[in-house]
Design a protein around this nucleic acid. Structure first.
Lengths: 118, 118
DNA sequence: TGATATCTAAACCATATGGTTGAATATCAG
DNA sequence: CTGATATTCAACCATATGGTTTAGATATCA
């Protein structure tokens, strides 16, 4: 109906709206971590932290693989990229280095076959 | 405590997590609109839409100026830029055109005085 | 003045969210 | 088997969210 209605974006932006979850993602950017490891910096029950991990997982921002009793989490950058792509449309409304980038990309696009969408 | 704790990011990402609000932003990218104009595409009471506008406003994504009885809203791109900047750190985890951009920016940074933060 | 238009405020509702605790499920180590 | 470790599940709670409706508050028009 409305357009700009990626089912993913709802979940991804919601997941990113919590500082605990953003911190977890940041931690995961250094490599895979167990749920307890992710929970450790926070003054919060493990069950609470586990719920945050689930939100990240549901948003597709994190994947999990179980090794024995330990659940390892990994950053899933694709969904982050998807979310960042949402901003691309708005980049023309501010004017810092991104402007230059935008121009470069657009010039690039003019020389390559179209990717998937604008 | 946790770091990556921009008070703005919470509100901005939360605001972006709703498709109605994203659509409103998109509409505003074409120029200023009144609250009713923003509300019109949605099957929702005006009061409901007005609440969405308030969320966008509270997040700093939209500003309002009253003209007579009409409240006009304008896109505030700065906060969007701020949110997009959050992604910059993660760009190295995916490899599409952004990679190239990243490299270009970094090369640029090496030649200019430092901006504000990485 | 009075009617209409634009918008917010307030009260309400159902459901989601972020947290807790306590119990259940697996796994690993003796 | 026993016990400790790693994690989830389930129930619960307070508060937030997204919506409604009804009732103002202003502003414009006639």
């Amino acid at each position: 109906m409305v357009e700009y209605q990626s089912p993913h974006l709802d979940a991804v932006f919601h997941a990113l709206s919590d500082p605990t979850r953003r911190a977890m993602l940041h931690r995961l950017s250094a490599g895979k971590h167990s749920v307890s490891q992710l929970a450790e910096p926070f003054d919060m029950s493990l069950a609470g932290a586990s719920k945050h991990v689930k939100v990240l997982e549901a948003a597709g921002l994190v994947s999990r693989h179980v090794e024995g009793r330990t659940h390892y989490c990994r950053l899933e950058a694709a969904r982050l990229a998807e979310a960042q792509a949402w901003f691309r449309y708005y980049e023309r409304f501010w004017s810092d280095r991104l402007d230059a980038l935008q121009n470069i990309l657009e010039a690039e696009d003019r020389q390559k076959p179209p990717a998937e969408k604008g």
